[in-house]
Design a protein around this nucleic acid. Structure first.
Lengths: 154, 154
DNA sequence: CGACTGGCTAGGCAAAACCATAGTCAGCCA
DNA sequence: TGGCTGACTATGGTTTTGCCTAGCCAGTCG
């Protein structure tokens, strides 16, 4: 069931103005495989340049470029740290803005586990409680909302 | 707060095997701007080729290629229809698999509205109830789960 | 002092994503 | 019969994404 659409978006043959769509705007920032996977790693707690490159399987050049983009876009913070007897280095950690994207990561993972299965997928559970987690669409009144029960007003 | 990671994924310097990550697998299918925006349109109820191309602002060539990919990946269904006095045409509609991706679309839209604002963004509400909608991460026991309270076992 | 390591930067190149223009094809309408 | 429309396909070109190799720089270890 499709959503219901009202307002400027309702005419089926009219192009939505370029920067009107927030999905589009988000995809301009994190719409590459490398950006999403680096964010996944940051969510997993990876902070060091080499670990990002190795664990995601990206070249140094792409890792460097993408991390810098994510920092300037405000999803990651680059901050100095010093281990004992080591010189100052930088670590990359998720900002609040980056953390706001975690539900999207979980949604992508859930879709992949269900619709593009392999021998095996990681499982995400509620730490402590132990129950499996999922993303849900809910309204402010607490109802669970099906994709067909959404009204998009533009 | 990062997630907690257990199992094979836990060693910080070990590359996850290529097809291990379901986020990666999903991004291989819908990881382009054009694919996401075409899915958005399908969710909005668009079904006709020209409307997809016009409303998303894509060239015919990309629209054609991407729609075909989404059909073969099982996210859209292409089916014939006939209007009165017209010849048979094809329409593209979301499958159950494609509908499973709607929470991701809503999550991307929510992030864009909050962190990449413009003059104006569309608003998604619960049709009928009228309250604004959001994506939430919840466990099977019904708890709302923060990104830092997730345990990923791989 | 030189080697090694972590964290990059630079150069060259292939593949994918995208655009613009133009053409095709089927059937209905005049 | 010839034109129009919806839905494509084809061609040529640019930009982005990514890989690989190589090099750099700072500080620590031998």
């Amino acid at each position: 069931m499709p959503a219901h659409v009202a307002g400027r978006l309702a005419r089926p043959d009219r192009r939505a103005p370029g920067d009107l769509c927030p999905i589009d705007r988000t995809m301009q920032v994190v719409g590459t495989r490398s950006a999403m996977l680096l964010l996944r790693e940051a969510w997993y707690g990876t902070t060091r340049f080499d670990d990002f490159a190795t664990r995601v399987g990206l070249s140094d050049a792409i890792t460097s470029a993408r991390l810098r983009e994510l920092v300037t876009a405000g999803l990651l913070e680059r901050r100095p740290y010093r281990e004992a007897g080591q010189r100052t280095r930088h670590e990359y950690v998720l900002t609040d803005s980056g953390t706001d994207l975690v539900p999207v990561l979980i949604g992508l993972a859930a879709w992949g586990s269900k619709h593009a299965p392999r021998d095996w997928s990681p499982v995400a559970t509620h730490d402590g409680c132990g129950a499996e987690i999922a993303v849900e669409v809910r309204c402010g009144a607490g109802h669970e909302v099906a994709p067909g029960d959404v009204l998009v007003t533009g």
